[in-house]
Design a protein around this nucleic acid. Structure first.
Lengths: 214, 214
DNA sequence: TAATTATCGATAACAGAATATCGATACCCC
DNA sequence: GGGGTATCGATATTCTGTTATCGATAATTA
């Protein structure tokens, strides 16, 4: 299958940035772009950009012109798995969970939330954005039936590990965790922590420093 | 002011993990905890944890007992700026924006969204979770009047930079950006990108690899 | 009171990522 | 058509972060 064109996690994180920037260029009918242009736009180092692109791009860049925008978008999209349609389930239909349910932004990246679950009997049975919320008991069978491998956790921290375990048992291989806890999973399962608390903390800390200085 | 107890970004990211874990211990009336215990719980390296704690903890750990839980929570909370109450404004009252408006999770970290704005005249004037959504024109005066320094951007990518510029002009020093673009700001202003797209991409990619292998 | 052990904290080795330097290539302009 | 230049791509270096090793300390126990 010849994947694992190993790229550092940090380099990987930069790819979506390139992607959206290139999409913008594409709209403006730009055909070629130099690595240095991208670097300047993003505030990255030029050589770094070139390295990243070299790792993922199918076709090499041309001296004096740069990289072909269309081809590059394709390469990055391919690398990031945007071209595969991935169905996902979500557990925890609280405020955040329901917001994600009705948020359209994921479909651009090939991810679609097809079902939601909640342990609370009062919540189960209701709907959000046309999607019914099911009781937890239905989770395993539904995952199996629909061949779902991606799960989103938006339950309180105390229940996250339990939910995660159920997911893994039900065949989930990739977990997107919004709860502020570290989840334990068997190898082969990937956990991505959407660590809003950390980001907030970084901002908070910056501010306390800044404001105090005046 | 003696801040800038320099700590790597990555170390910094681990702090909220410790924080929530310690909070759990505190509830269970645990008084002391060893670095190795924390490390085991989080799946981190033991020495790494000890280093992180050494950097932020006010009081050193005691041999044979470990670190005092209460003091440690205080130290980390202090370091992360959780003890300062920071008011924030939000621009872009779409689905995601409104979800954040009504999400309670931030208050734990000392952040409170006090006002929301939107350029769309149809949206401005409505309310979410008891908070009125104002037209953009009101932003500068309100920031000045309430001494607000934190801004949250949940507008489409195409408008993010423009919104960011307005924020900066209005005295915002810390920006939490949910739009998938790189924002340019003067030095002294901190931008944190909540990069959902990246996280999704990582999951997507993991899955395409995993599933193909069977 | 002395031996034992769990834990800390500092220094040192290692790994990986970011950055700089250099030569090669293809386009542009004279 | 030939020199100049912008851009790429590879190699080398520096830097930062992680992991390992080791001695020191304080509680425990005999």
């Amino acid at each position: 299958m010849e994947r694992e064109n190993i790229l550092s996690v940090q380099a990987f994180r930069r790819l979506p940035n390139y992607y959206s920037f290139l999409k913008g260029l594409q709209k403006g009918k730009v055909e070629y772009v130099a690595a240095s242009t991208i670097a300047a736009a993003m505030g990255f180092n030029e050589i770094q950009v070139r390295k990243d692109l070299a790792a993922v791009s199918a076709s090499p860049g041309k001296p004096r012109k740069g990289f072909a925008v269309d081809a590059l978008i394709d390469s990055i999209g391919e690398y990031l798995g945007y071209h595969n349609n991935n169905d996902a389930i979500l557990v925890g239909a609280g405020r955040l969970g329901r917001a994600l349910l009705s948020y359209r932004g994921f479909e651009v990246h090939g991810v679609r939330i097809v079902a939601a679950f909640d342990a609370d009997a009062n919540i189960a049975g209701t709907a959000e954005d046309g999607k019914t919320i099911f009781p937890m008991e239905k989770l395993p069978s539904m995952c199996a039936r629909l061949h779902i491998h991606m799960g989103i956790i938006t339950v309180p921290a105390s229940q996250a590990q339990a939910v995660c375990d159920i997911m893994v048992q039900s065949g989930i291989l990739a977990v997107w965790n919004f709860a502020p806890v570290h989840l334990h999973v068997p190898s082969g399962v990937l956990v991505q922590n959407e660590d809003m608390a950390t980001q907030l903390a970084a901002l908070s800390r910056h501010l306390t420093g800044q404001i105090a200085e005046r």
